[in-house]
Every structure is written in C-alpha cells, then in structure tokens.
Design a protein around this nucleic acid. Structure first.
Lengths: 140, 140, 140
DNA sequence: CGCGTTCTAGAATATTCGCGT
DNA sequence: TACGCGAATATTCTAGAACGC
C-alpha cells in the first residue's frame, strides 16, 4: 500500500530537525545530550544545564518547554522510563528521552521524512463546517 | 436578580490554592517565591532552584511545568515581562510572575473564589450539541 | 458604522507595541531611535547600528527587516521622504521614519487601539469559497 | 467523581523568507 | 528598487487528554 509513496526524502530537511541532529551528534555536548545506546532515541542528561547552556547555541531561547513543543510538533514522543512497571519520577532519573522513527543514529537519510504538523486553523474549519463561509463575521 | 447566588466563598478552598498561598507566604522561601511589590501577583525568582528545592516540599513532583499546568487550571495567568526570553546581559532576573484576581496578599478571604476549570469532556459537548444548552446546568 | 466599537482600549497593549513605545521613549538611545519633531512618528537614525545594537535588547533578533515586518503587521507605514517632489533614496537620508495614527508622543492611552492584522491564509478561504471543503487538498 | 501529574496539542504572537507591484 | 504582504516556521502561554489515586 505504501510502495512508492516517498515524496521527498533526503532533500529539504526542516531547520529544526537539522539542528537537532547536529545537537545530538556534537561530541562537545555528549554529557548533556547524546544518542541512546541503541541509537533509536536521544537522551538529555541534565535538563537544567542543557536548557541554559546548549539550547541558546542553536535556538533563540533557553527553555526546555519550547524545545519539547518543537519535538512534539515534528512527531517526536517522549520515552517514559519504567521501573518495575511504574513510571519513574523525573527526580529519580534526571534523564529525558525522546524518540522518532525517522531520527536514528547513522541514518541521516531518514531525516527528510520528518514533517512538521500542520496547524488546524480550527476556527475556519468550524465555521465552514457549520455555516459555510458566509457566516464568517470576522474581519479578514 | 443575583441575590443568594454566592455558592461557596470562604470555605472549601481547593488544596492546590491552599498550598500555593502557604508557599508564597512562607518567609523561609522568600528568596525563591514571594509576593510582588503591590501584592497582586507572585514571583518565582529562580525557576530551577524553585522547582527542585521548593516544589517537592508541597507537591508530588519537582517539575515547573506541572506547577504551571495547575496554575493555568485554576485560572492564573503568567505576567509577561518586556524582557522575556532575551539574553540577559547582566543575568538580570530569571523571574516568573503569575497573577489571579482573587489571589492577593492579605486577602485570604478571596481564595474560595478561585475555581478549578472544568474539563471539556467531549461527551458533554456532544450532549449539548444535540440537546441544546437547556439540560446543562454547568457553566461551560 | 464603527462608532462605539472600541471594546478594549487602554488595557491589553500587545507586547510589540509596548516594546516599541519603550524603545522610542528611552533617552539612552535617542541618537538611534526617537520621536519626530511633532511627535506623530518616530525616526531611526542609523539603521545599521540600530539593528545590531538596539534591536536585540528588545527582541530575539537583530534584523531591521524583521522589525519592519512587525511594524507593517501592526499597521505602521513608512513615511516617504521627498526631495523636490521626488522620493529621496535611502542612501541620501540614512533616516527611516514610520508612523501610525495611534502611536504618538505623550499619548500612551492610544496604544491599545493598535491591533495586529489577522493572517489571511487566503488560498484556503478561496478554495473553500468556491469548492467547499472538499476541494482542499491540503492535509489539515 | 474530582484532583494531580504528565505528555501532547491549540492558539496567538514573533521571526524569517521571498514574492508582487 | 523599495514597500507591504503571504506563508511557513519558531517561541510562548494555555488547554486537552490519559491515567492513577
């Protein structure tokens, strides 16, 4: 079903994904952000130092929350750490892990498959669904 | 028309609000969380130390994001500073400020007016959509 | 038609407008950005120094073009400098002037009237107008 | 059921790029 | 060319949703 669906693969990697790749690859910050052992996810070791010291080197902010918002926007998911069937408290691990099926060590050719999610512009959709476009009172 | 509408004022202050009040009032942590000068908002001075050192004394976590989620859930709003997010030349202030009209210094009798927001569970929405608003007593 | 429509005037001034006001008022940078003589517009004297030295103090960038994009977004217009009936080249004046009817010296109460323009996304609207939602190929 | 914690998404503004006149 | 704008991504603040207690 999905044969020959690949629209644009290697080219046109979004800026955020490029930066993230560089970030994880950079040896100089391996103590703060690095690949997981199997290379299928990446780890942030010290969230506080990472956000204040590393993030501003690549982005226009130093907030972990903004970084996470971007990760989610591009389809990354946090990997929940379990301990005997229960999720570990962050204080116990102080290690954040995120994963995306197309973000893997030594597989840069997959990066082009990572896509930003489209905004839903829900107010337009809702107006259109209920009233059609005529009911749009809003000044556009 | 509005006679006898006051539902529950002083009593029944939500646990989160009580804790927040104690948190802001406590002199021992005034260097990390305290009232603003005019007493109409509160300030968190060092987000990183606050989350790790103070939050676990009152809650089951040490994450600023969880604290902020609760604040928003109870109708608090972040007060945006003009220098928000800028590279602090003199490390001026890592200072977060939140405000609620019924959370003010020396006005504990207002705390009962702070209400947790209701979740907009979809089945309620669907009921309202099909049946109209008449059956719904609850403020949505 | 638009009489008595003013819903929120003084309060709720957008962050950009607040910053712009502070920027123009600040005496320390009067040599780079200041009010015009009649107080109905503001002047940027040395675009290069202004963008590199002043802008990053208030915004997350140091690009004049981004600053101008915001000005246009909020309805400011560039004042064209004339010389004997012909527009002066920028190289001749090295002074950029912008104006908005509600941005005037000593009139901060008008700032609340300055509104950000709404995004158009016109191509979606046009598709919806003519075809309904079915014609929208875009993944929403 | 209601509240608390966590992960993800919505919505508004901000920044960047490039097009049309 | 210069000016204003459309559109996409980026950053921020707030809310939705899932789950446990």
């Amino acid at each position: 079903a999905f044969v020959a669906m690949t629209p644009n693969t290697a080219h046109c990697v979004p800026a955020f994904v490029s930066k993230l790749w560089a970030l994880v690859e950079a040896p100089s910050t391996d103590n703060l952000i690095c690949w997981s052992q199997d290379g299928c996810s990446f780890l942030v070791q010290d969230e506080q130092r990472f956000s204040k010291e590393v993030l501003p080197l690549y982005f226009k902010h130093s907030n972990m929350t903004s970084f996470v918002r971007q990760l989610n926007m591009y389809g990354f998911h946090k990997v929940v750490h379990m301990d005997a069937g229960l999720p570990k408290a962050d204080s116990q691990v102080d290690c954040v892990e995120f994963q995306h099926e197309n973000f893997q060590r030594a597989q840069p050719h997959l990066l082009g498959l990572i896509r930003r999610k489209v905004k839903l512009i829900s107010f337009i959709i809702n107006i259109v669904k209920s009233n059609g476009i005529k009911g749009c009172k809003r000044r556009l």
